[in-house]
Amino acid sequence: MNWSQLFSAPLAFKMLALAAVVFAVGAVTLRNVFHCALSLAAMFFALSGVFVLLDADFLAVVQILIYVGAVVVLMIFAIVLTERITSTSVKQVNDLVVPGFLLCLALLVGLISVVRVASWPSPAGGPQADSIKIIGRQLLSTHVEAFEVASVLLLAALVGAVFLGKEITKK
């Protein structure tokens, strides 16, 4: 079963790209941070659609699971624990809007011109039929050191988050 043939119309890519860009802009510019988090979740849904177009179905599912299921929920928890959502009258941007916008525009023009000028390869071979098996084998053979380091990093992040989040009762 080849999913890319089902979606292979360029229209699907254009619509997903448009949705991703629109929701990314929303996540960056909306005033209410809660709406920003929801827009981030929508952007990751669109991005995982693009992953499906690239025959990375495992990664698309993992993206939704981790980002929408864990990271965005964590952010919403942090937002409701800190921010008073109704107080949207506070200024949400700093003084760097105009220079930041110009800098980002210059970077975007540079990146797009490089992307347009360079000669990129056409698709190499067909898609892998069993990407999950290959990814699992790669993780435990070629990249096993990085895998172990990533697990230690996750453990350190867990301990650090618990330590930072607990009540400090001394002094």
Binding site: A20, V28, L47, K91, Q92, G100, L107, L108, L111
Partner: peptide, 13 residues
Amino acid sequence: IFVIGLFGVLTRR
């Protein structure tokens, strides 16, 4: 998308 994210990092309070 990267540039949009960079703009957010630079300008959000």
